[in-house]
Design a protein around this nucleic acid. Structure first.
Lengths: 342, 342
DNA sequence: TTGTACGCGTTATCAC
DNA sequence: GTGATAACGCGTACAA
């Protein structure tokens, strides 16, 4: 059963089938102008010998590796892993593999990982967001490597993108709270350094409140790392303020869950005593008690569309430079009118 | 700034530095017996020309691609994405890239993906669990490809592994409930086909209850897909039973969250009216109200250790064939004594 | 439609 | 220590 100490090469298949190596290669690559008989003879030879093409040799000769690279801040964030999951599945349909690198929101690490992936010879690259080291762009364009950014909506001639507006829904969320009568708002956001999405959301919150003549003072805007525990602690910090906020805008659902769970522990009723909003619409959001008001981020769609568009670019096509997906507000029960009887 | 229409090759570097291509290659690969001066001359030439090694050519000549493959059921499961995240980070330290393929618990897909990754030329392979098509093993061993399985504890001479016991903690969880006086137990488990971990956990539940003389009848063991919504619905189905269970054992934390949130909605108090257990210890678990009793799965550790061990195997070493990590019970507040006053 | 022969960019095996 | 040069395994003009 344990056959090949010596590897079986394309040449062996050619010999077995009694044809040239070029013909075998043609069969392998579904080239046109191959007679039925030749094809079947080659195929049986491949079957018989258990031949498997050598990826690297193939890549070297064809200048195509059959894999694309993805640079992701982290996979330890449900919304990213969902997107990547879809991206990979879709790429598989196009017969592309996925090479992943994470950089934990450190743009220098991202740049380094970019170089590594390019060196590996990826046929295309996916990056998250709009914040990158300038030299990333230089590298990408100089190499003429097809690439795409996602998760943001910034209109930039240099960076083709498939994403959604982070600011507008954030703005709408804040307006929603204001319209419910809330004036004592607070924000629990993710760190904005190297993270344009977090920045865009924060700006949405700030703009809406300033425009309404009720700006959020800096001490009511706190920045914490991604995590339930972080949201939990943020709630505690905010509720120590005098007076405590009547509504908390969170930069993402996980932080919102942390806030909600902390409130539950503290006996603070949502939305009666406190309104809370998230951003992402993770599966949990609608099952929380109360169900979380949030923004539905099209993570799966992005994964699919990025795969399609990037493959198209690799094939030499030029799909839309910028593509905007919908990220609708989902108003649920975690937000309610200001309780004036309290 | 946009230099190379013509790619810069190793030969160009050699010429620029006035040395042979062999020497450049030696410098690149940190080979011994290279004089300081030659090294620095080559390095400045590389710098000056902005040379980047060609991965495929390198792989072809060296028979080493610098990437390992991972076959994962899905990334859309926090516990896997956490593990993969750590795996990737650790691999990076060893200067290896990560090629990912998902198969949605379909073992035929897994086998196909295995072939694809092998064809890509990965230097090693990571698989989840012990359930695989037999021919996967044949392929792996015939190719003499270093590989490792994880997340399970099955002692099998064919499959080296780094994992944890799924059965014992499940057993302990059930015993914990029994010791609290519960006799009307129910199980919400994940599909067991092609998933030895789910099967092992289920067996733990069943064994413990049978041994205690209080077996769980089949209609109280329901199988649902991974997801909050699925757990939610499972709760509703189980509570329609006459009599309803007083404790529910869930196959993973996400299902448990679904059950808890459904209970909350239904006004069923946990643990007073119903005890609930999970499995995984996701970050949320300790923040739920009440905090979830569960089993802490060492996802991050597995990621790290798998990376180290696989790299060691690739380097020709033979680390432990089977390595067991701890998966401790975490008793929190979602389980309590049987309420006899109800 | 099929075959020949060369090129892809490195690494590795020799000599020196 | 360093330099020629032959692999590495396949794709693809070009010729037939």
């Amino acid at each position: 059963m344990n056959k090949p100490l010596k590897n079986i090469l394309l040449a062996d298949v050619a010999q077995e089938a009694g044809v040239s190596t070029a013909s075998v290669s043609r069969v392998l690559n579904r080239a046109p102008h191959v007679s039925k008989q030749l094809r079947s003879r080659v195929e049986t030879a491949i079957e018989k010998l258990g031949y498997v093409p050598h990826g690297s040799a193939r890549a070297l000769a064809s200048r195509r590796i059959g894999a694309i690279g993805a640079l992701v801040p982290t996979l330890d964030n449900a919304i990213f892993s969902t997107g990547i999951n879809c991206l990979e599945q879709r790429l598989k349909h196009h017969d592309y593999r996925l090479l992943i690198a994470t950089y934990r929101y450190d743009l220098d690490d991202e740049l380094e990982a970019l170089h590594t992936l390019i060196q590996q010879g990826v046929d295309g690259m996916v990056l998250i967001g709009h914040d990158h080291r300038p030299s990333a762009l230089t590298t990408l364009t100089r190499r003429q490597l097809p690439f795409l950014t996602c998760w943001h909506s910034i209109d930039d001639a240099n960076w083709p993108s498939i994403g959604f507006d982070n600011t507008a829904p954030a703005h709408a969320l804040a307006e929603h709270l204001l319209s419910l009568g809330h004036r004592l708002l607070a924000v629990v956001g993710a760190p904005t350094e190297g993270n344009d999405r977090a920045r865009a959301r924060l700006q949405g919150f700030i703009q809406a409140t300033e425009r309404a003549g009720c700006p959020i003072p800096p001490e009511r805007i706190i920045t914490v790392a991604y995590g339930i525990a972080e949201g939990f602690q943020a709630f505690e910090a905010l509720m120590r303020l005098k007076p405590p906020p009547t509504a908390i805008l969170c930069g993402n659902d996980i932080l919102a869950f942390g806030v909600m769970l902390a409130a539950q522990r503290a006996g603070v009723r949502i939305p009666d005593d406190l309104s809370v909003t998230g951003f992402d619409d993770l599966p949990q959001a609608r099952f929380m008690t109360p169900a979380l008001t949030t923004v539905a981020v099209p993570a799966a769609d992005i994964g699919h569309q990025v795969a399609d568009a990037l493959v198209a670019r690799i094939a030499g096509e030029t799909p839309a430079h910028r593509q905007l997906l919908d990220a609708p507000l989902v108003i649920r029960e975690s937000t309610g009118p200001l309780n004036t009887t309290a």
